[in-house]
């Protein structure tokens, strides 16, 4: 039996799950997780991508209701070093990530067996398994869902851009003049809302595929339980003697790329800059914090032991003193 999850089978499964959801009143991601015990991941086979930008257009169309509608003029922000980030007049930009463009196509021309070859592939949030954007967000605006999606709640985000700073790929993009900060201290705190791919969480809730996967004429992407996606990625990599990106990066992500050429070569060939992420190897950003968290279990035990030691030695001294008096 074929285990991979294709668009068709995902939709079929999604519809079946939606029926079960309707019966059990549970949202789909929970049902999927309960059935598989795993997060959902996407597989991007870059050999298939023709760079047609159908995914980019579909993403913009489907997510248009989520896009920011900033109020102008923007409140003056202090101190003067705080810069406005306004993409509202450049909504058509598709060659990089912006608050209005959550996926874009990156291109790399590399030499394969002495022949020049161009690869294109969609880039958007990797949806890390332990996302630093969600872990370090001071308000819980950036959060990880049980189905492996990391999303930013536009109703809570203050646009401080911390998520972008701590993201190894700097995916989130800011739009000024929108969001909760306008109701608090618009001149002195916050600067809008951060936007990035939310892997169409609302479509997945309804049993539908993310728009970029659904529209793709070349079936570049697949979505399914992470274990199966990883297995398939390794099978493809073995077959084509290829390479994988995203499995181990930043401690593991839910976006797995498979390529016939090393990602190191692709990384050298792509345009990198603001809104255009690299393909560098990434160490687990939260690994040190996770290790320190373990030490937090030991600390109180050490404290109790020290107090008990002090009590024991003081009691011993007092007993000796009293015995001496006798």
């Amino acid at each position: 039996m074929k285990k991979e999850i294709s668009r068709r089978s995902f939709l079929k499964g999604g519809l079946a799950a939606a029926g079960a959801v309707a019966a059990s009143s549970l949202p789909l991601p929970e049902a999927v997780k309960a059935a598989t015990g795993e997060e959902l991941a996407t597989l991007i086979d870059i050999r298939k991508c023709i760079g047609c930008e159908a995914c980019v257009e579909a993403c913009q169309e489907v997510n248009e209701p989520k896009f920011p509608e900033p109020k102008k003029p923007f409140p003056k922000m202090y101190p003067s070093r705080v810069k406005v980030s306004d993409w509202s007049d450049d909504r058509d930009v598709t060659d990089r990530l912006t608050p209005y463009n959550w996926v874009f196509i990156q291109e790399a021309t590399v030499m394969v067996n002495g022949k020049e070859e161009t690869f294109s592939f969609p880039r958007r949030c990797m949806h890390c398994q332990n996302p630093p954007c969600a872990d370090l967000c001071p308000w819980g605006a950036a959060r990880k869902l049980r189905n492996g999606i990391t999303r930013i709640d536009a109703d809570i985000c203050l646009g401080g851009s911390k998520c972008k700073t701590v993201c190894p790929w700097h995916f989130p993009q800011r739009q000024t003049g929108v969001g909760l900060y306008l109701d608090i201290l618009p001149n002195f705190a916050g600067n809008g809302v951060m936007y990035k791919c939310d892997r169409c969480y609302n479509r997945i809730e309804k049993g539908e595929l993310p728009a970029c996967i659904d529209i793709c004429p070349e079936n570049v992407q697949k979505i399914g339980p992470r274990g199966e996606i990883i297995k398939e990625a390794h099978a493809i990599a073995k077959e084509i003697k290829g390479y994988i990106y995203g499995e181990k990066e930043n401690g593991g992500t839910n976006t797995i790329y498979v390529s016939p050429v090393p990602f190191e070569d692709l990384n050298k060939a792509i345009e990198i800059g603001p809104g255009m992420p690299d393909l560098n190897p990434v160490k687990d950003s939260m690994a040190h914090a996770d290790n320190l968290a373990k030490a937090m279990i030991i600390a109180p035990i050490a404290g109790i032991a020290a107090a008990a030691g002090k009590f024991y030695s003081t009691s011993k001294k007092l007993t000796h003193t009293e015995e001496g008096k006798k």
């Binding site: 937090m296 050490a302 107090a307």
Partner: peptide
């Protein structure tokens, strides 16, 4: 996090020192 480790150890010590 390092401060939290020290604080947890210190609080545990002071609480138990008081009770002992």
């Amino acid at each position: 996090y390092i401060g939290a480790i020290l604080l947890l150890g210190l609080l545990a010590y002071c609480i138990f020192d008081y009770f002992f």
